[in-house]
């Protein structure tokens, strides 16, 4: 099964071609701030190098979030359109699960996170199981203050007798002092592990349920500030987005 997978969730633009679990090729543009101008040319390059057309791809996969809101929408829109037009499978993979998948350690809590500024993180925690289905989520992906995240980590480790934690992703090294206070041995991901890899998204999608391209949407993990403020001010309940958009 040929899988084309991509991440536009962070500064690292990554596109990969997998044949099943095998990564055939992966291209990365580190510190790329213009995903819109670069994503399609990178896809095109990979297809040409492998003498493939988009129509020969069996499944499209994308980092669904969390991550940069604008970045996520570029990748998600692209795969939605590919899958919708070509009638192919599409699957969204948690950006954090993809980060965790770069760590092979067993009996270790893998905390994957993206710096959301002001000591907040989009983060989740994962563990590798004996099977090869990819890391399993044990602390759900969410928007956490570092203190909340670290107490959840400490609690999980205590309850599950884990004595090793890896922090992978962005912005964790500046929390070194706070992390030390958890009194659990820890390490940080390597430079290579700290970026989201398209090839790992491709691998993870093998065990994911395909999504309906029309329904595939970024997993932002946070409402917009405008909605939060509106909710506070008016006390009105959040309604599904479909209540607000109408064809005229």
């Amino acid at each position: 099964m040929k899988i084309l997978s991509m991440s536009t969730a962070t500064n690292n633009l990554s596109v990969a071609l997998n044949d099943g679990a095998k990564i055939i090729t992966e291209k990365n543009e580190f510190d790329q701030r213009n995903h819109s101008g670069h994503l399609d040319p990178l896809i095109d390059e990979i297809l040409k190098e492998n003498d493939l057309s988009l129509a020969e791809i069996d499944r499209f996969a994308v980092a669904i979030g969390p991550g940069s809101y604008t970045g996520l929408r570029i990748g998600v829109t692209t795969v939605k359109m590919f899958a919708s037009i070509l009638h192919k499978d599409v699957a969204g993979i948690s950006t954090l699960q993809a980060l965790a998948a770069s760590c092979a350690e067993k009996d270790t809590l893998i905390v994957a996170g993206i710096d959301a500024r002001n000591d907040n993180y989009f983060a989740g925690a994962y563990v590798n199981k004996e099977d090869d289905l990819g890391p399993e989520c044990v602390i759900p992906d969410g928007h956490y203050h570092i203190d909340t995240l670290l107490s959840a980590v400490a609690e999980y480790c205590a309850n599950n007798n884990l004595e090793n934690v890896i922090y992978v992703g962005t912005g964790f090294e500046k929390q070194k002092e706070a992390i030390k206070k958890t009194n659990i041995p820890f390490s940080f991901g390597t430079e290579k592990q700290n970026v989201v890899h398209g090839g790992l998204i491709g691998k993870l999608t093998l065990n994911a349920q395909p999504d309906d391209p029309d329904q595939l949407l970024p997993n932002y993990l946070r409402r917009t500030q405008a909605e939060i403020d509106w909710h506070k001010k008016t006390g009105e309940a959040y309604k599904p987005d479909s209540n607000y958009v109408e064809e005229v």
Partner: peptide, 19 residues
Amino acid sequence: RFGGVVPEVASRHHIEVIT
């Protein structure tokens, strides 16, 4: 709800209906 167009909200709605 907000008295004017909120860019992030607009972007989120666009992607919901595009396909």
